[in-house]
């Protein structure tokens, strides 16, 4: 290379530039070190092996996850029904019998009876939904194959489904005596009420301990019951409410319940430790 600099033209060279003569000189030396380009098969094999480590596109992962979540969720739902404390099912049965007995008291309005009993199974069920959190198990549950969020969602499904059946049975039992509840309007009224109560009580239960939320809600609820019983205008309003308004309220109730459920699954709890708040932001 040194000779090349002293021979030939007087062109100024930068340190990185070589001319054709210099290249010819070194080319014969470079030919001793062939670098073969990999074959197509080798390239494809490498891509295939590395693709296992590439993150999936966001949309694809969520679609896969949602299919798997649905299947797993219903498996968990089946299991969780067994785990529910017997006292919960007993309480629901007692409320059903209470509704039936009250419905036979001709001095009482059957619609109001059912209306006031409607949300109670769901509210009591929140004790089961949040029992992992309130018992301090959440940290362990979050590290399991089935996560705490899946558990809470499964329990919520059990409680909500149970309450839907409860309302239907209550309507049947009370209507057996009075015959006035088996109408679309009555069903709309009762299930709308359920949606509003469920969304509200879930919102509350996500902010305080389950037992506290249930107590607070029931105190408020019974106070409301007393208020309604004393005011005939309220009863009249409930009975004459237009279906369109009922649909709007049902829509709002459903939206509230769905939003609270989403928040519960997405980002659940806030625990305080030594003065710091940390979020279990498990996905």
């Amino acid at each position: 290379m040194k000779n090349q600099h002293t021979n030939g033209t007087n062109k100024a060279h930068s340190e990185t530039e070589i001319d054709i003569d210099e290249y010819s000189e070194i080319a014969s030396h470079l030919n001793q070190y062939p670098v073969e380009f990999p074959s197509e098969a080798e390239i494809n094999r490498t891509i295939l092996e590395l693709s296992a480590y590439m993150p999936e596109p966001e949309g694809a992962k969520q679609k896969w996850a949602s299919r798997s979540l649905t299947q797993e969720l219903f498996q968990v739902v089946r299991g969780e029904m067994v785990i529910f404390h017997k006292s919960y099912w007993l309480a629901c049965a007692v409320l059903l019998l209470l509704g039936f007995w009250l419905g036979r008291q001709h001095s009482m309005d059957s619609t109001l009876i059912v209306l006031f009993l409607v949300p109670i199974p769901f509210v009591l069920g929140l004790l089961e939904v949040f029992k992992g959190r309130d018992s301090g198990l959440m940290e362990m549950e979050l590290t399991c194959k089935i996560t705490a969020q899946q558990l809470m969602l499964a329990r919520l499904i059990v409680v909500l489904s149970g309450n839907i059946v409860f309302v239907f049975l209550l309507m049947l039992l009370v209507s057996n005596e009075t015959g006035d509840l088996l109408t679309w309007k009555s069903a709309g009224l009762l299930y709308t009420q359920l949606l509003i109560s469920a969304g509200t009580s879930l919102w509350l239960a996500m902010r305080v301990r389950g037992g506290t939320a249930v107590s607070l809600f029931l105190i408020f609820w019974f106070a409301l019951v007393q208020f309604v019983l004393t005011l005939k205008e309220v009863k009249a309003f409930i009975e004459t409410i237009q279906p369109s308004w009922l649909a709007v309220i049902a829509f709002v109730g459903a939206g509230l319940l769905i939003r609270q459920t989403y928040q519960m699954v997405r980002k659940y709890t806030s625990q305080t430790e030594r003065g710091y708040s940390f979020d279990t932001d498990h996905r």
Binding site: G132, S135, G136, L137, M138, E139, M140, T143, K145, T147
Partner: peptide, 16 residues
């Protein structure tokens, strides 16, 4: 999570 075992500092149980 399937290959993980974890015991947290604060343990909680269903006492019943």
């Amino acid at each position: 999570r399937s290959i993980l075992g974890y015991m947290p500092q604060r343990l909680g149980f269903y006492n019943r």
